[in-house]
Write a protein that binds this DNA or RNA. Sequence first.
DNA 1: CGGTATCCTAGGGGATACTG
DNA 2: CAGTATCCCCTAGGATACCG
Lengths: 132, 132
Amino acid sequence: MGTRVEPGMSCAYEAFTADCPSRRLLEAIGNKWVSLSIVALGVHGPLRYGELAAQIEGVSQKMLTQSLRRMERDGLVTRTVTPSVPVRTDYELTPLGRSLLPLLHELKDWAQEHMPAVDAARAEYDAAAPSR
Amino acid sequence: MGTRVEPGMSCAYEAFTADCPSRRLLEAIGNKWVSLSIVALGVHGPLRYGELAAQIEGVSQKMLTQSLRRMERDGLVTRTVTPSVPVRTDYELTPLGRSLLPLLHELKDWAQEHMPAVDAARAEYDAAAPSR
DNA sequence: CGGTATCCTAGGGGATACTG
DNA sequence: CAGTATCCCCTAGGATACCG
């Protein structure tokens, strides 16, 4: 408890307290569907609910809706409902949400460059002791 | 199915297929304990199991061990056991693991800069319709 | 010290059906 | 079309106890 950190400087590097910004960010966007939605919206601009669902293979209606609500609450996307028949809902990144794009883009770059190495490591690990 | 992507270029930007590198990376390091362990090891250098546990507030023995095993399998850390009594185990980042550090560092920077905005958005959202 | 092994529960998350 | 509601399974993950 001796090492209290400054507000805004919390989680500086010494300790990862339960409520430090880094951990809370991971809880907010660490979710697969959340980050994929952000990237999809970043690439294609505003998207309707159905378009978004089509972009993200395998996402269920429940999870997509839940993720979008959380993102809206976190100020990452705006939700615009047009009460036509049938109804139309558009999702768009806020400036805050857009500010995450460079980060996620780099993540994607890392993945494309290094995932083969990860696969190789896995294969070797599994081959060494198949029982593990 | 018409838009097939090049190997290595998969998940280029059009579609997020279930097995594209970006999604698989998120599954590998999206985990809170994994990324926190990587950063802790990146900052402090090699760490013993107990030291690592002390760095990461609130992690259970089970989750830490499980995360470290997964990271070892993925080639992100090495695990060195010294069979003394009591036994000593050191964890260290591999070059592959280290290559994630800049990324995670930027994540941390984003968190420290923008999490207050997220908190504000949440407060406003909750205030607008407390029932949600 | 650095783990397994076991038990247990809250929540993640899919499938399906219904609605404005 | 874009949801909500319900059911139900299954895993993440904590607590506890034991071991080399």
